[in-house]
Design a protein around this nucleic acid. Structure first.
Lengths: 219, 219
DNA sequence: GCGAATGTTCAACAATTGTTGAAAAAGAAT
DNA sequence: ATTCTTTTTCAACAATTGTTGAACATTCGC
């Protein structure tokens, strides 16, 4: 025993370091592009420890995916509820709903926690994957998405459900590419736009998507 | 390189069978999620043959990516030129430009050639990947994209270049998720929307995106 | 203190990976 | 037929993969 004298940050416990390392590497290279040894090396941990804490590689992958899901869903659900509370009987506008859908993501990344950035890039990877998408997205995110779709339906009276879903698909795609952080827009624009500038990304995405919804669903 | 006098369909030469198999498997599982032996098995070919024709695994990956790129670029460029030819001095409208950007993709898949479907899914995988995107997209697609962006700038006089690029980013994201064919929209909508129904996808995407461009860039 | 539960390391496993060189088969040219 | 070139197979390589069981270390309840 000794006085720990925690003058500075105590090293994060190994279990979390593994999750952090896996999060970052899976987000950049995908499930098959990362080895357990790479994860262990980045986490400064023995290879066998990942197995001890999480079991198989696939279980670790799912653990990473699930770690921040609830917290993220809560933030978005809360944002939606808040916009509904301040709105009248007819409910929030399309812009307000989309804002509630997107801004919590911006806030998550603006905490300065790099982990959130990696996590959202991982969601982009999974959502865009024909293999992982159908296997992993529904379970964690469907309920919340349906809440937003219901709110959008109310804000767009008379819209065909089919149209709403297609518009949501477009929104989801624009969001996914944003979260992936591929820097492609940086190159195309010659540095005029920066993938890391999420405020700019969302400031442009929200009116863009809202106008799209109105054009397709309100007519 | 080869004389074009095939009277009837001969069994596809082994070299092309390898490309077809690699195309399909890379599109679904990514570069690291596929082994050369899986590709060889699907192509009904020996493992070493892939190496003989294409060299390293990475070279095969790039060969798959490049095989249909030129043909696709030509189709899109031609569609853009056609819309410019019929338009007056002020050039085609935003809808017409986006239509020229998207419809060739729909046509490619409607040939019934499954290869095109896999190829476009592969583009979605690469475009959404933080690792492959910056390494492979620019080289083949930047010139064409800049042509479309120039046309959009002309159709949206006074728009800030920054805004145009962000709008293109949103368009690219919606398109990417469509090409990925993840069936997520099928699940969410309870079968109301189908990922394979590209006509419905593009019929909804075009007005959606056009309205977004106008909202963000014309004001 | 002791002992049990938990955390961590070590060494090794069988399986699979991309890649290769040499042999064999097929095709083209003379 | 004979050579030469191209295509295809075969067998094997060193390296790396995920996973495991047993040993070692640490922490915690008492």
């Amino acid at each position: 025993m000794s006085q720990p004298s925690p003058t500075i940050q105590p090293a994060a416990p190994r279990r979390e370091r593994i999750l952090d390392a896996a999060e970052e590497l899976f987000a950049e290279h995908g499930f098959d592009g990362v080895t357990l040894r790479q994860i262990a090396r980045r986490a400064e941990v023995d290879v066998a420890l990942a197995n001890y804490h999480f079991g198989k590689k696939l279980d670790l992958f799912q653990a990473v995916f699930e770690r921040r899901a609830e917290s993220l869903n809560d933030a978005r659900r809360q944002a939606l509820r808040a916009s509904q509370a301040t709105a009248g009987d007819e409910g929030p506008t399309v812009e307000q709903i989309i804002e509630a859908f997107l801004r919590p993501l911006e806030l998550a990344q603006e905490t300065g926690d790099e982990g959130w950035r990696h996590y959202l890039a991982l969601i982009a990877y999974i959502n865009n994957s024909p293999y992982w998408g159908p296997r992993m997205m529904s379970h964690l995110f469907d309920d919340l998405v349906q809440e937003f779709i219901a709110a959008l339906s109310k804000a767009l009276p008379g819209a065909k459900p089919e149209d709403i879903y297609w518009c949501y698909h477009n929104l989801s795609g624009a969001l996914t590419l944003t979260l992936a952080q591929t820097k492609r827009i940086d190159n195309l624009s010659g540095g005029l736009c920066r993938s890391e500038d999420l405020q700019a990304a969302y400031d442009h995405m929200i009116p863009f998507v809202a106008a799209g919804f109105r054009e397709v669903c309100q007519r």
